[in-house]
């Protein structure tokens, strides 16, 4: 019996714009175990990104509690959330979001600036992370000089460099071809299996979802009972 990493209880997220009211998530309950690799699928607009943002402390629910690793994200202040994100969670985006002016190594080092680590130590850790994603030899290149797949690897290195428990990926292969996507997904699998990272990955691609341990389907702000193992 694996222990629970994240628990969502009765979580709702409502956007209110003037008189218009959008119920994106509706009284959602979810448990995620440590070491899980979860794929989240569902039609566009069903609330996947919203759910991911709540789990990563980028957004707060309108109602309900979000508990990740014992931290009650739903009742933390913005600056508490900032600090929490720095050490507990890594993000991987569809469009990588690397800073164009920094080399790959400096991009990876970025989250370590939030710690009290020495410059030497930061650089060493960044090298390790780049090594894990197989890009040790491109450390001094800038994002513009890398391919999409390579950029995503740098982004993954950045997500794991501070050794967070949880990785949140929003369509990480959405912008890549099949072969490159498969490489990235294998990398995520390795991180899950060998490095013990808990991963939640939003995807529209059924083949991508196959790399996960299980798949959850979302529709109109609700999780469907159907899960694929």
């Amino acid at each position: 019996m694996a222990e629970t990493l994240a628990t969502l209880q009765g979580v709702s997220r409502v956007y209110q714009k003037g008189k218009e009211r959008v119920d994106v998530l509706h009284e959602l309950d979810l448990e995620i175990n440590t070491g899980d690799f979860l794929a989240l699928m569902g039609p566009s607009g069903s609330g996947k990104t919203t759910l991911l943002n709540l789990l990563g402390g980028l957004d707060k629910p309108t109602a309900g509690t979000v508990n990740v690793g014992g931290a009650i994200l739903s009742s933390m202040s913005n600056s508490q959330l900032s600090n929490w994100r720095a050490t507990h969670v890594g993000f991987i985006f569809q469009f990588y979001n690397l800073l164009p002016v920094l080399t790959a190594r400096k991009n990876v080092e970025l989250p370590l600036l939030l710690t009290n680590m020495s410059a030497k130590e930061r650089s060493r850790r960044a090298e390790i992370a780049l090594d894990i994603v197989g890009l040790a030899d491109r450390a001094s290149h800038r994002p513009r000089e890398l391919s999409g797949g390579q950029e995503q690897r740098v982004a993954i290195a950045r997500a794991i460099v501070s050794d967070p428990q949880l990785l949140l990926c929003d369509e990480p292969t959405g912008d890549l071809d099949r072969a490159t996507a498969d490489e990235i997904l294998k990398l995520l699998q390795t991180l899950n299996a060998e490095h013990g990272k808990t991963i939640i990955m939003v995807t529209h691609d059924a083949q991508a979802a196959d790399y996960a341990r299980r798949t959850l389907h979302m529709d109109k702000g609700k999780l469907e009972a159907r899960t694929t193992a």
């Binding site: 990563g56 980028l58 913005n78 600056s79 900032s82 600090n83 929490w84 994100r85 720095a86 050490t87 993000f91 985006f93 979001n97 800073l99 970025l110 989250p111 939030l114 950045r158």
Partner: peptide, 15 residues
């Protein structure tokens, strides 16, 4: 905007 949002997601504070 994009850079700021990315940094904030990584854990950099508003200050």
């Amino acid at each position: 905007g994009k850079e700021i949002a990315t940094l904030r997601a990584l854990g950099f504070g508003p200050f």
